[in-house]
Each structure stands twice: as C-alpha cells, then as structure tokens.
C-alpha cells in the first residue's frame, strides 16, 4: 500500500481540496448561529395597532406602543401647525420628511403628515441621536426652544412638526407607516 509513487503536486491538490471542502462546510454552519439573533418570526409578525384618536383633545398628545417602540400622536393646535408650516425647508438641518408614507420627500409640514389630517402628527418617539425618548408629550414637559419636543439626554430640540432644529440629532423624528381607517381611527404598521 505504500508502493504507489505519487506525484507530489497532485497529492497537495487533493489535500487542499479536502481541507477547502471541510472549511466551507464549517463556515456555512456559522450563518444559523448569527441569524438566530435576528428578530424572530413572532416579533416580525407583530400585528399592526389601531388607535382611536377621538379622546385626544386639541393640544394634547398620547404615546402608544408599536413594535415595542413608543409612538407619539399629537393633536396639534392651529397655531402649532401654522408655526410648522412657515419654516423654510432650506433652513432645516435635515431637509427630508422622513415619512415612511411619503419616502424621500422634502421636510415640509405637509409631507410629515397625511393629506387632509394635518392636525395629527404621528411619529416614532425616539430621538434620532442616541435613542432616548424626547420630552414634550405631557403639558408640563419642557418642549424645547421650538415648542415641539426636547431630548434631555444631549439637548436636541424638535419643532412642532418633529423636525430637528438644534442639537446633535442628525435626522427628523421618523414617521411610521400608518393610515386613517376612519376619520378618528388610525392603524400603525
């Protein structure tokens, strides 16, 4: 069994091929162990949430949970809407609306809301800087210099349209996908 004389080149090819096959197999086993940390099928399938807006009076805001995140819903006063509308988009640190229902559009107040429902502002209440929850939902809160929201962690100021105006946050507050099921009910997600 030791008599066969081998060409050393060929021997190496066989050994390399075998090692490569073994290594590829071992490597492909890694993926399941990484993917298992991604959100599971149960989390991905979390149902959309329906919210009745009728109890929220003008000037008030509520916070609801959607996919484990807080969502701010504010019934804005005409003054707040007006304030938000008058700001020129070019002056904003982030000129994009960040509205999932209207992707890529400029950050006008109109683009941050749904047509016909401009008094309702619906946003994910997570500061785009490092993930704290900005103040401004309750009447007694510090609403920041622009009358919207203020993040106490690193001092980001958002206006009445939830757009970043001052401070370290890079983006406007995100608007989640939502729609009006009826005049006073929205479905998020």
């Amino acid at each position: 069994m030791t008599a066969d004389v081998e060409d050393p080149e060929r021997r190496d090819v066989l050994v390399i091929a075998a090692s490569a096959f073994a290594a590829v197999g071992a490597a492909s086993l890694i993926w399941p162990f990484i993917d298992q940390m991604n959100p599971d099928a149960g989390a991905l399938a979390l149902a959309s949430t329906e919210i009745d807006l009728s109890p929220i009076s003008e000037g008030q805001a509520i916070t609801v949970m959607w996919r484990g995140k807080p969502v701010f819903i504010r019934h804005r006063t005409p003054t707040e809407v007006e304030e938000a509308k008058t700001v020129p988009v070019d002056d904003l640190p982030d000129p994009v609306a960040r509205n999932e229902n209207n992707p890529g559009s400029p950050a006008t107040d109109q683009n941050r809301t749904l047509p016909g429902h401009e008094k309702w502002l619906v946003m994910i209440g997570i500061c785009t800087h490092l993930g704290c929850i900005p103040k401004g939902q309750s009447l007694s809160d510090n609403k920041g210099e622009f009358g919207g929201w203020f993040c106490p962690c690193h001092g980001s100021h958002y206006d009445t349209s939830g757009r970043i105006r001052k401070g370290p946050a890079p983006r406007n507050l995100d608007v989640p996908p939502y729609s009006f099921v009826s005049d006073s009910t929205i479905r998020i997600g």
Binding site: W31, P32, F33, D35, Q36, M37, N38, D40, A41, G42
Partner: peptide, 8 residues
Amino acid sequence: DVNYGWLI
C-alpha cells in the same frame, strides 16, 4: 419562531 431554532 426563532430563526434556525428548529435546527439549533
């Protein structure tokens, strides 16, 4: 439900 949980 966990990704690849049926395998791991």
